[in-house]
Nucleic acid binder design. Structure first.
Ligand code: MN
Ligand code: MN
Ligand code: MN
Ligand code: MN
Lengths: 224, 224
DNA sequence: TTATAAAGTTAGACATATCTAACAAATATT
DNA sequence: AATATTTGTTAGATATGTCTAACTTTATAA
């Protein structure tokens, strides 16, 4: 049986998604970057980029940075939509913790069944954000980040609300769990150590929690 | 990234499952049968059987029928367990019809995450049967069919309960839907046409429904 | 501005999973 | 028993996705 895999192979889908996720403001990504992110050697990436270019999903020219085409971006967004809907479903409907869902979503995002994800979407009430605060692309592939600031860019005296996390690794999220840090939390900045930028913050029944710069850089907050 | 696929590849998993599903009383399956079922040419099947034999999952000898080893059977049962739990979850927790779930389960059965399926199992209350009446193998790969009879083997005057369906194709299940036939239904056999074995049955507010032999063969019933 | 390092490409190998064509063995039919 | 049919195997080709080694281009540092 020709195991039905939609228009793109599983491998192709993972490249498209990575390109989308790595694209910053400019929308471009280097071969090297992509290679490191996917843990796939550069020559392999180059050859896949030629293939995706032939399918008009990536703009590829030798020695120039990569960029998704409009169609490539649409396909990528659709996969990311499935990933994030899945994460939300796992947390909201199946009782998983936010630190447990990424690896499962990494697999389920490749399921070919529009109906399956429409059902998820409906059961969840058409959510706009995933459990880590990342926006869920709509069916047209459009999404917009809230205007967050890194906690590390905030100043003592400010009171902010935790809106998203920038690193979805299980280890990081478990660390946040251990400090009762979760989305929606109101946090007051008590002080910043100028030497190493360590912050001391207050929230809920944590009168003075110390957070490293590494951690604060990965916490996105809303300044009301 | 070495896309993590447990111990067996997706292709291997589909062969194991097919071997399990096709194995009758004797537990053996012919290359030809497997080839037709999977829609994969015989030479391909032969070479995969050699591979699975090398992994000690299949007993293979030239020109002899195939049989899963004990370990092969365990692996296969684990996949079928995931398939049937998924079908149950889709129907019970996501509102799908029993005619919609097979194709999605065909994909989700390959997800590698024991926790994901344990959660499903728990949320469903550890079900013993899938939405089509097939038994769900337990974690040790053990399962037992209820002692059903084919409706086609029953006689006029008998009153039986529909316990399972033998064909999970969307078309067949939609046909059953159109006649309000579903598991648990109590059915009285009114008459059997000796020429073509067509049955006339009565159930619920269907005073006299005519069912072809082809249909009756695929309905498994309990004689109380 | 040249030398060095980093990034990227080309060429060729390899594993997996599939196919077709040709041949062989087992089974069924006459 | 001889022949024909079905079933199964072997050999060799192809597509996909990965790798290493060697080379080229671009960027960085002397
Ligand atoms: Mn994720
Ligand atoms: Mn993925
Ligand atoms: Mn099924
Ligand atoms: Mn499958």
């Amino acid at each position: 049986m020709t195991t039905f895999r939609g228009v793109n192979s599983l491998a192709e889908e993972n490249y498209l998604k990575a390109l989308f996720n790595l694209a910053g403001e400019s929308g471009v990504v280097n071969v090297n970057e992509l290679s490191r992110h996917l843990n796939i050697k550069m020559p392999t990436v180059t050859s896949m980029m030629k293939k995706l270019s032939a399918k008009n999903l990536v703009h590829y020219e030798s020695y120039k940075p990569l960029k998704l085409t409009e169609e490539g971006e649409k396909r990528a967004a659709a996969i990311i939509r499935k990933h994030r809907l899945t994460e939300m479903f796992l947390v909201e409907k199946m009782g998983f913790g936010w630190e447990q869902v990424h690896d499962i979503a990494e697999q389920i995002e490749h399921i070919q069944s529009p109906l399956f994800f429409e059902k998820m979407d409906a059961l969840l009430g058409y959510p706009k954000f995933d459990p880590h605060g990342s926006p869920i692309p709509d069916k047209d592939g459009k999404m917009k980040w809230k205007e967050f600031h890194k906690l590390s860019d905030c100043l003592p005296g400010e009171e902010v609300i935790l809106g998203a996390v920038i690193n979805n690794s299980s280890e990081f999220l478990q660390f946040l769990n251990s400090r009762d840090l979760r989305l929606g939390l109101s946090i007051s900045i008590l002080s910043v150590e100028s030497f190493d930028k360590t912050m001391v913050v207050h929230y809920e029944n944590h009168p003075a929690e110390t957070l490293s710069h590494t951690v604060c850089e990965r916490l996105l907050v809303d300044k009301q």
